[in-house]
Computed example of a mutant assay.
Amino acid sequence: MGLTDFWNGRRVFLTGHTGFKGSWLSLWLEKLGADVAAVSLEPETSPSLYARLSPWSGREHHIADIRDATAFKQHLTDFEPEIVIHMAAQALVRRSYENPTETFATNVMGTANVLDAVRDTPSVRTVLVVTSDKVYANNGSGVPFIESDTLGGKDPYSNSKACTELVVQSYRDSFFKGRDISVATVRAGNVIGGGDWSKDRLIPDFIRAFESSQPIQLRYPQAIRPWQHVLEPLGGYLAFAEALTVSDEAELPDALNFGPDPQSFATVAELAEALGLAHGVNDVWKQAPGAHLPEAPALTLSSALALSAIGWRPRLTLQRTIDWTAAWYKANREGADMRAFSLGQIAAYEEAIS
């Protein structure tokens, strides 16, 4: 599954481009020669990956909220994109417990606003909506989820993303059938990589603990997650969006999982210990005290359909993922040009999938 010159000059509209995954995708699209316009809130962290990867060239950058339907529609219709990749979201489980209405407003109604704007933008041929591996009704069995499994979610974040899937399905069936437009969703595992400084995520929490010479506190150290480098699902998104644009819509699924090789499934504690080894430290973690909000004990994905449908498969081992992540933060601490460093990792990944 190598990337082609398809993206060179292609008009692409992104939402959520100032976030972790959005910043990496923005840089990759710029490298591929795409003509990009993007809408997002201001970066929520300081430092910010979006700032680290600047300067940005050949792009329209708008600070706006997808919950503001009028403003968002104006930006989309003015740009007249061919492809829309919708990534903007409230993406943190613990924050969803603290502010569930914000989570549902952003993830559900925000997505409805995006799709409603697409209805009035004739130039759009493909819409890719990014949801989550947490959209599935999870009984904790650890059996890898496939795309036809029942949607669900107990916490507000997971439930809001399952609802997002239903919103996409409704708009596809109600408004886009019979039109020359493909609308699909993508569901990825727990992504890690350089430049994430979000709250309540393992890698940035580890980095903060490491830099303060403290062990990281883990709420659920034995929870199993499908860890993967951020470039893995992003490569899948690009390949799927290209396929949706150039292929007959009926030939492709409405949703695809992008997860790591099963050998990359690991507990939270195992990943923390591997990160500690990469940073040369022992006694990496300790049990966080007190009661904690519930989280699924096991979550794994099957990506068999992505392989059969578009030829995508994960290329990075868990160890290589950890090495690339540790190398990024080390280079950042040493004052390296992180735009150039990140472009180097993208180039290395492109070589791996070519």
Results as ranks from 00 to 15, higher is better:
Gly2Thr: 10
Trp7Pro: 07
Arg11Val: 07
Thr15Trp: 00
His17Asp: 14
Lys21Asn: 12
Leu25Arg: 08
Ser26Asn: 12
Ser26Lys: 07
Trp28Thr: 06
Ala34Cys: 11
Glu42Ala: 15
Pro43Asn: 03
Ser48Gln: 04
Leu49Phe: 02
Arg52Lys: 11
Trp56Val: 11
Ser57His: 14
Ser57Asn: 13
His62Ala: 14
Asp65Gln: 14
Ile66Asp: 03
Ile66Gly: 00
Thr70Arg: 13
Thr70Asp: 15
His75Ala: 12
Thr77Gly: 11
Glu80Ala: 12
Glu80Phe: 05
Val84Phe: 12
Ile85Asp: 06
Ile85His: 05
His86Ala: 03
Ala89Trp: 12
Val93Asp: 08
Arg94Gln: 14
Glu98Asn: 09
Glu102Asp: 15
Phe104Met: 10
Ala105Asn: 11
Ala105Arg: 08
Thr106Asn: 09
Val108Ser: 12
Val114His: 06
Leu115Lys: 05
Ala117Leu: 09
Val124Trp: 08
Thr126Glu: 09
Thr131Leu: 09
Val135Pro: 13
Tyr136Trp: 11
Ser141Lys: 03
Glu147Ala: 02
Gly153Cys: 01
Gly153Arg: 00
Pro156Met: 05
Tyr157Trp: 01
Thr164His: 02
Leu166Gln: 13
Arg172Cys: 03
Lys177Met: 15
Gly178Trp: 05
Asp180Cys: 08
Ile181Met: 06
Ala184Ser: 09
Ala184Pro: 00
Ala188Val: 13
Asn190Gln: 13
Val191Ser: 15
Gly193Met: 00
Gly193Thr: 01
Asp196Trp: 01
Asp200Met: 10
Arg201Ile: 15
Phe206Cys: 14
Arg208Gly: 02
Ala209Trp: 09
Ala209Met: 08
Ile216Arg: 00
Gln217His: 12
Tyr220Phe: 08
Pro221Val: 10
Arg225Cys: 04
Pro226His: 01
Pro226Ala: 01
Pro226Leu: 00
Ala239Leu: 15
Ala243Ser: 15
Leu244Ile: 10
Ser247Val: 05
Ala250Glu: 15
Leu252Arg: 06
Leu252Phe: 11
Pro260Trp: 01
Pro260Ile: 03
Phe265Arg: 09
Ala266Gln: 04
Ala266Thr: 06
Thr267Ser: 14
Thr267Pro: 08
Val268Cys: 04
Ala269Lys: 06
Leu271Pro: 13
Leu275Gly: 03
Ala278Lys: 13
His279Pro: 00
Trp285Gly: 00
Gln287Pro: 15
Pro294Asn: 06
Glu295Gln: 10
Ala296Tyr: 13
Thr300Asn: 11
Thr300His: 08
Leu301Lys: 03
Ser302Ile: 02
Ser303Ala: 11
Leu305Asp: 13
Leu307Ala: 14
Ser308Thr: 15
Ala309Asp: 11
Arg313Asp: 05
Leu318Met: 07
Leu318Asp: 03
Trp324Ile: 01
Trp324Ala: 00
Ala327Thr: 09
Lys330Ile: 08
Asn332Tyr: 13
Arg333Tyr: 03
Arg333Lys: 10
Met338Ser: 07
Ala340Tyr: 00
Phe341Tyr: 12
Gly344Trp: 03
Ala348Ser: 15
Ile353Asn: 12
